[in-house]
Computed example of a mutant assay.
Amino acid sequence: MGLFNRKSAQERQEEAMQMADDIAAGRGFMGKMTKAFMGSEFTEAMQQATSSIHQAEHVAALRAAGVPTQPATVIGMQDTGQTINDNPSIVLTLQVGTQAVAIQALVSRLEIPRVGEQVQVLTDPQSGALLYAGLAARD
């Protein structure tokens, strides 16, 4: 911990994420007050934002664990109007094999996929959900 019980950056980040989850879910005093004063639309948007963050963290953990990715082609995209740390949340329509699939993903503002580009997706071993894993390597 260190002198004066200082927390590491990771511990502070985890604590802040837990607080955001609690507020978005309406738990605790701050959650109830936020929902009362800001309204349910705001808390629903906050829940979507925290869900996107958790999904991005989950994909990173799956990739680190060696879950294989597969290529997909972007055939359509739509902005959700939501950003997290200036990174947009978008709905991607992807051609995966012979199937067209729409998924919502938080993408880097530096690597926003475009229609016609190749991206990487992976299948969550627990839920079977298809998850965005980033742009495919360019030749």
Rank of each mutant, 00 (worst) to 15 (best):
G2D: 14
L3Q: 15
R6I: 09
R6D: 14
S8N: 05
A9E: 11
Q10E: 12
Q10I: 03
E11C: 08
E11G: 06
R12L: 13
E14I: 02
Q18Y: 14
M19A: 15
M19D: 15
M19H: 15
A20R: 13
A20L: 15
D21V: 10
D21F: 12
I23H: 06
G26A: 07
G26E: 07
R27C: 14
G28H: 10
G28C: 13
G28D: 15
M30L: 15
G31K: 06
G31A: 11
M33H: 09
M33L: 13
A36T: 14
M38N: 07
G39W: 06
G39E: 02
E41S: 02
E44Q: 09
A45V: 06
A45Y: 01
M46F: 15
M46C: 08
M46H: 12
Q48M: 14
Q48V: 11
Q48D: 14
A49F: 05
S52V: 03
I53A: 14
H54V: 08
A56P: 00
A56D: 04
H58P: 03
H58T: 04
V59Q: 00
L62P: 00
R63H: 00
R63W: 00
A64S: 00
G66L: 01
V67C: 04
V67S: 05
P68W: 05
P68F: 08
T69N: 07
T69S: 13
A72T: 07
A72H: 06
V74D: 12
V74R: 12
G76R: 08
G76S: 09
G76H: 08
G76Y: 04
M77Q: 12
Q78Y: 00
Q78R: 07
T80N: 01
T80H: 01
T80G: 03
G81Y: 02
Q82R: 09
I84Q: 12
D86K: 15
N87D: 11
P88M: 10
P88W: 05
I90M: 14
V91R: 11
V91S: 06
V91M: 11
Q95R: 14
V96D: 09
A102F: 01
I103L: 13
Q104L: 05
Q104P: 03
L106K: 01
V107Q: 09
S108Q: 03
R109F: 09
E111Q: 07
E111W: 03
E111T: 03
P113V: 04
P113G: 05
P113F: 04
V115R: 11
E117N: 06
Q118L: 13
Q118Y: 08
Q118R: 13
Q120V: 05
Q120W: 13
L122D: 04
T123H: 03
P125V: 01
P125K: 01
Q126I: 00
Q126D: 02
S127T: 10
S127C: 01
L130T: 06
L131M: 10
Y132C: 10
A133R: 08
A133S: 08
A133W: 03
L135D: 04
A136E: 03
A136R: 08
A137N: 09
A137W: 05
R138T: 04
R138G: 09
R138Y: 03
D139T: 06
